[in-house]
Structure formats: C-alpha cells, structure tokens
Design a protein around this nucleic acid. Sequence first.
DNA 1: CGTAGGTTTGACTGATCTCAAGTTTGGTGG
DNA 2: CCACCAAACTTGAGATCAGTCAAACCTACG
Lengths: 244, 244
Amino acid sequence: MTPKHENTLHEVIASLDRIYPLGSSDRAALEALPFETTEHPAHFYLVREGTQPTACCMLLQGYACRHKITSTGERQIVSFHIPGDMLDVQHLELDRADHNVQTITPVTIAWVPKPDLQQVIDANPTVRTAVLRSALIDASIFREWVLNVGRREAVSRVAHMLCEFVARRSAAGLGSPDCFRLPMTQEDIADATGLTPVHVNRMLQTLGTRGVMTRDKRDVRIVDWEGMRRIADFNPAYLHLGPR
Amino acid sequence: MTPKHENTLHEVIASLDRIYPLGSSDRAALEALPFETTEHPAHFYLVREGTQPTACCMLLQGYACRHKITSTGERQIVSFHIPGDMLDVQHLELDRADHNVQTITPVTIAWVPKPDLQQVIDANPTVRTAVLRSALIDASIFREWVLNVGRREAVSRVAHMLCEFVARRSAAGLGSPDCFRLPMTQEDIADATGLTPVHVNRMLQTLGTRGVMTRDKRDVRIVDWEGMRRIADFNPAYLHLGPR
DNA sequence: CGTAGGTTTGACTGATCTCAAGTTTGGTGG
DNA sequence: CCACCAAACTTGAGATCAGTCAAACCTACG
C-alpha cells in the first residue's frame, strides 16, 4: 500500500541509481534540485515537436509516451514511459523538440530548470555517466522498436510491446510481471506497433486463444511466460537492465 | 579529385566538429589518439550482437549499417553510416552489443582503444558534449525510422530513406544532393524500410514514373526535390544538422 | 441515466508478400 | 579483351495479412 505521493524526485533518482549506482553526494545534489510539480489529464501534450523546452520534465506518477506524426496525421508512438523516467534529457543538448511527449494517463510531472540540472550533471561525473547511459539505453530501445515494427508479424509486435512494458515496469519495482493493468488504450498499442486498433484487438484475442495470457478489460495476466516470450521474440538484453 | 586516403581520424574529427564546434585543444587531443586501421570487404561484420567490443570503431571510408535480426532470421537495418561516423560510442558505456554493425561496401576502419577515447572525452568537456550530442542525434534518427517503418506507405518509406541518406551525405560534404550513387543493394533498402526486395524494386520504379528521380543502375538523380520531399514526408529537422 | 470514449464483431478490400522465372551486371581468370 | 559466373535486379501471377468501413456494444463517469 503506497502512501499518497510525496512529490519529490525520489523515483527519478532511484531510476538513475538503477542505471548506474550513485554515490551519496550525487544523490544529495539531485535531491537539492529545484523543481515544480504539475498535474495533467490523460492525452495532454507535455512537449510539442518544434518547440524549445526550457525546463526538463520528469514523470513522477502516471504513464506517458513519445510520438511523431506524419503529414497525413498518422501517429507513431516511439516509446512508453513509466514513473521515474526523465522525459527530455535530450533537450539539454538539442534545443528543438523533434517529437511530442504526451500523457497516456493522468500524471504528476516535475519540471526542473535546464540550467540547474545541467549544473548538477557537470559537477557530478557519476550523475553524468548515469544520464549518458540512460540516453544510450533509450536509443537501444528505439532500435528494438524499429525491428519490432519493421520485421515482426502483428501478434509478435503486440506481444513484444507487452513484454517490454512489463519488464521495464517490474524492473523499476512498479508491480508484478505476471499480473498488471494496462494504462494504454488499444489505439495507443496500435500506434506503438504500427497496426490499426481493430487489428490490435484481434491480436490480443489471439494471445488469449493461444493460451499465453488472459484479460479482463485492461487487466492482463500472463499465464505462460515462456510462450509469451516465444511469440514476442522477446530478449530483454536490449533493455540493459542486468548486472553490468 | 580526392587523393588516396590518408588514414587519419580527420573525417571523424570534422564530423564531430560539425555536430558541436571544437576548440584547437579538443582537436589536438583527438588527433593524438592512437588507432589502427583495417580494411574489410562488403557484408563484413564489425560488431556482433552479444559480444563485448574492446575498441571503438570509426568509419574512415565506405558505408556501413547497424542491424538486428529476429529469431526467424529477418534482418532489420536501423541506420546507415557514412565516412566520419563513430560506429560504437555506445560501447563506451554499455558493454554488450545489442545489435550488429555490418559493412555495406568495402571499408577502411579506425579502431581506437576504449580507454584512450574515454580519457580524451573525460578531459575535454567540448568533446564530451559533441559525443553526447552525436548520441542524441542518433536516437532522434532511430525515432524517425520507427515512424517511417510503422506509419508510412511503401513508396514514402523508400523515398524517405533516400532523402535521409542524401541529406546526411551532403551535409558531411561527401557529394551533391542531386546526383549520387547508392552504395546499398535493393535488399539492403528492403531491410531498412521493412519491405521485401521485390517491392523496393517496384517502389523505385514508381518514384521514376512519378517523375521525381531518374535511375541508371545505382546512379540516382533527383529531378524534383520538392516532389521527392512531399512523397517522402521528409523534414530534415530530426537530423539536427542546422545552425543551432 | 446519458454520453463519450473505448472495445468488439463482421464483411469486404487492397497493399504488400510470395514464389518462380528471367535478365542484367560487375568482377574474375583465362 | 573476352567468357564466365554469382550476385543483383526485374517481371508476372497469385496468395495473404492487415486495413477499411460500419455497426453494435460496453462501461466509466459526470
């Protein structure tokens, strides 16, 4: 039973620490960062493509995604984000957003002014390394998504997306890998897998009839992880979670 | 008329300098890096998924790509690389390769020992920033590829791949944007766009009949850039080339 | 309750794949 | 310089996975 959220950067620091173990001075510097928190409903834009963000946003509670839109208005989600994720490290270095960041569920966001964060990174080599590793891991995840969307059949794409979501979520200590509630709609899943919502619905049913998972509304229970992993062609190495 | 290649890190340094302007001491530090050069034929593996690279390879001459392979043996190329590109910055921080790096044409490669490169990066903040920016730009390109493969129709995917290749190549001063020779086979293009070689062939013909380019074997001439750009839905902002 | 957003189903369509057979090309050795 | 060969490219016909369209059904929430 987690208590009502405290609005500190605690999860973000824990998440960086998981990526690269921080020292006490690193942690202290991060904890001293000034920030403001805001709350937003689902489907709210936190960053818009083409704008120049001036603060660095971090996800404290709820779920979000990054996406891009074609000139014909088709949306492609390129990553999902969970509490503790830094949502725009890249804008420390690249001043124009090349994609959108949008909420999936209602969220609590921490906004840290860019100069303050930059200073902590510059002054703390370990933090710097953690942030760099985090950016490199993001890139690895994007590569896996290119593969997923480019070369896997529909069932596998959906299964893979589910496996990744669960793996990241439980690695962050945010819930069981066997039983969880999906925060995203089937349309979100469609936009993440390069499919249509109708087909995603059918593929979710297929995963049911193949006996690897059961579903009650958005509550999913994986009943055969090995089967799931096989259908998804899921190998978590690309998440670089493990002991280094 | 370029003279026979000199085997220095010159192109790599120029490429970093384009990403983030270097000072003379940065340049001197990079020029002092020890390295060995090797030559390899087309289709040669420079890095294999799952291995732990001990040197950082850079492309001096020729073309290469990164790719991943599904359990059923389908290849998905996730990026192409041109002379001057650092091919595995990520292995400075992540020790296991999560993808393959393979040559497209015969290449000349410079291998820099990881510790030496790490030291130059640690000692030169500007170099560090340039490398970080380079990694962030790579990530941006991966995101665009997810969109390309996930949400664009076949002609657009092929056109987009061509636009990106030309834009990056001419930004690096490696040739004209209007007229160039493709280093990759139609099978490579297929693996980059998530299509089959047969369909890539048809889409290249379509781009011809739509009057945006002409083709003689692998020599391509773009005759209508605006039309090409429109079919490709190409907006180079994601390459972060421009004046910052 | 009413309503909007989300999910499910069915029937039909079509973009892309598959398979299979040619044709062209560029490199190599005689 | 030419003949040969493997790799790359091209073409056609038929199959299929996923998309489209449209309607109905939930269900959470005001």
